[in-house]
Design a protein around this nucleic acid. Structure first.
Length: 294
DNA sequence: CCACTAACCTGTAGGC
DNA sequence: TGCCTACAGGTTAGTG
């Protein structure tokens, strides 16, 4: 489900209610998600205060008063929501008992101003997972991640270095979290459309002979940044079931240029192309064969 | 090391 | 309606 903008939307939805909250009780309704919960997971959280909610790539990082970090990855269908909690917009309420079958983690919290809260993690497909560690460097999940695409370490020149010897199609290269951390299937297609680059181009063919980034990689870096920024501003994309922690759905899906738009006209000004769908490494890719150049 | 496939698991949409 | 297939926002293990 969630790529960087959706995870960031979740983080922003959770932070006001979790920052400063004490975790009173943690109930695990099963012993694993995609992977087993670490030993002593629930006990390590209970009694601790959440000092901050961070995000790295598609990971949520809950910084605890014990010094430990509780990590959560949402996989495809993971979601946090608050139970018994009233929000201002009725259309955004979760129905009581919604998706109970897949409520795998239930946490009772006390927040200094919001009072008693119940936080629920649900995940139908259980591709999500959680972990606990003392230092980020200890986490095998965080190790090896590429730069944050919205951070200073990400640039066209940086991509040029990583792509120099990559024979894989640019679509696959951008999905590789070791290259850039946080892009997924939707935003890779969208970023490549913005940069007018065909997804089948070999990554190394975008690098100049000199080894430096040229205009194409500059456009790509811009495309990646702008699509992520706009998607975050729109609260992410809701295709099937994505919700922010307060139940709000995202709106960026209405602004997709190519994703899930097979057969529709290309939105690039003056472009006469029609969006096509192909399959790359087993996953759908959408692009415009006219304005996205090989 | 690189590139590709299958696998993990459940729900849903669409064809017949 | 029911049955069957294809596909879904991600990552990893295994293979060549």
């Amino acid at each position: 489900m969630p790529e960087l903008p959706e995870v960031e939307t979740v983080r922003r939805g959770l932070a006001p209610y979790l920052d400063g909250a004490t975790i009173d009780k943690v109930t695990l309704n099963r012993k694993d998600l995609r992977f087993p919960f670490p030993r002593g997971f629930a006990a390590a959280l209970e009694g601790k205060i959440v000092e901050r909610v961070d995000r790295r790539a598609k990971y949520l990082l809950f910084r605890l008063s014990s010094g430990d970090t509780w990590l959560s990855h949402l996989g495809m269908t993971g979601a946090f929501r608050f139970a018994d909690f009233k929000f201002k917009e009725p259309s955004r309420y979760y129905e009581p008992g919604e998706d109970i079958k897949h409520d795998h983690v239930v946490m009772h919290l006390t927040h200094p101003t919001h009072g008693k809260l119940t936080l629920i993690y649900s995940d139908a497909r259980r591709f999500g997972f959680m972990d606990l560690f003392a230092r980020d460097e200890d986490s095998s999940y965080l190790k090896g991640l590429g730069p944050e695409p919205l951070g200073n370490a990400f640039s066209a020149e940086e991509m040029a270095e990583r792509f120099a010897k990559k024979a894989a199609p640019i679509k696959a290269a951008l999905l590789d979290q070791r290259v850039v951390a946080g892009l997924g299937n939707i935003y890779v297609s969208e970023a490549l459309h913005r940069a007018h680059i065909r997804p089948t181009v070999k990554a190394r063919d975008l690098v100049l002979k000199s080894g430096h980034a040229g205009k194409r990689l500059e456009l790509l870096a811009d495309g990646v940044r702008t699509v992520l920024i706009e998607a975050i501003e729109a609260g992410g994309s809701t295709l099937r079931d994505f919700r922010a922690a307060d139940g709000a759905s995202g709106y960026f899906q209405h602004r997709f240029a190519v994703y899930d738009r097979e057969g529709e006209p290309c939105p690039t000004p003056l472009c006469t192309g029609t969006i096509v769908r192909i399959v790359q490494s087993g996953r759908s890719t959408f692009y415009c064969p006219v304005c996205q150049k090989p």
